Amino acid sequence: MADFLFVHGSCHGAWCWRDLIPAVEALGHSARAIDLPSHGADPTPIADVTLDSCRDAVLAASKPQTIIVGHSWGGYPISAAAEAAPNAMRALIYVAAYVPQDGLSMVEMRKLSPRQTIHEAVEKSTDGLSYTVKPDMVWDLFYHDCPPDVLPYAFARLCPQAIAPQDTPLPTSDRFAGVPKAYIRATDDHTIPTEYQAQMSLTAPEAMRHTIDSSHSPFFAQPQKLADLLDKIEKDLAGSQV
């Protein structure tokens, strides 16, 4: 049995793993999710959110045997956690997520993408501290292949995303490089181009690179298939450590 910890992406919260957690638990694993600062039930003011505080939220929930799964922007705080304390986790799994290049922020990473998909979809707050996704673009950007109940469920819970942590460079070293990694690429992603995901997935060994025929939200679109992939990755990790 593995211990999976799920870390959400921009504007989301622990709620987005609603369908995946029971599917993973049915395979015999433990599974839990956290709210990053200012998301979900976390009361942190947006002005106080930093990359470090996001990193610390991950570390506070992780144990040495934990496999940390990060989605989208969640790839950054899980990577920061690995850089800060590589022994505090067993492995990292990126699901349609950003994998940092040494010294670059997520904003800089997004700008390196071969296609820009979200520029017209986001609105910055009047104080310049956060952004939200335009309501009429949420479905196509995140959930276009998801069951119809997902949009009202998610729409009621999406929240502003703090900009500061995403605009903070993340230096990485051999500490980050030494943590085992896997990548699950979404092939029909309208948020992070799948070809860019393929490029970022090269941080993982070839045997630890997988694809799922899904939008940016495979945890809603194909929770069982995603759970099965996580289960396979865990078994492959166990085999590689024998």
Results as ranks from 00 to 15, higher is better:
37 P>C: 09
21 I>L: 15
65 Q>N: 13
235 K>N: 13
236 D>A: 14
10 S>M: 08
18 R>E: 15
167 D>V: 03
231 D>S: 12
134 K>P: 00
27 L>V: 04
67 I>F: 03
93 I>K: 03
141 L>V: 12
170 L>T: 03
197 Q>R: 01
204 A>W: 07
52 D>Y: 02
118 I>A: 15
110 R>T: 09
36 L>P: 00
242 V>T: 11
101 Q>S: 11
49 V>Q: 05
66 T>R: 00
159 C>W: 03
83 E>W: 01
107 V>N: 12
9 G>H: 11
112 L>T: 11
47 A>T: 13
242 V>Q: 15
193 P>I: 10
103 G>D: 05
202 L>Q: 11
110 R>H: 07
180 P>N: 14
53 S>Y: 04
4 F>Q: 05
186 A>S: 15
216 H>E: 03
197 Q>N: 12
18 R>H: 15
236 D>I: 02
136 D>Y: 07
78 I>F: 02
99 V>Q: 09
43 P>D: 11
119 H>R: 13
39 H>T: 04
229 L>Q: 14
238 A>Q: 13
98 Y>V: 08
65 Q>V: 00
64 P>D: 08
143 Y>S: 07
74 G>F: 03
86 P>V: 05
117 T>S: 09
137 M>D: 09
90 R>W: 00
164 A>P: 03
26 A>R: 13
201 S>W: 05
95 V>D: 04
51 L>E: 10
105 S>Q: 03
218 P>Y: 01
215 S>K: 02
107 V>T: 15
126 T>F: 07
78 I>V: 14
179 V>N: 12
233 I>F: 00
136 D>K: 02
157 R>W: 02
211 T>A: 11
166 Q>A: 14
4 F>C: 00
68 I>K: 11
172 T>F: 06
35 D>S: 06
123 E>S: 07
107 V>R: 10
214 S>K: 03
194 T>A: 15
121 A>W: 05
35 D>C: 05
9 G>I: 06
131 Y>H: 13
182 A>Y: 10
75 G>E: 07
98 Y>S: 11
200 M>G: 06
191 T>V: 00
231 D>C: 03
181 K>S: 07
58 V>Q: 14
16 C>W: 10
42 D>M: 06
213 D>A: 11
194 T>W: 15
44 T>N: 02
40 G>M: 10
169 P>E: 12
199 Q>H: 14
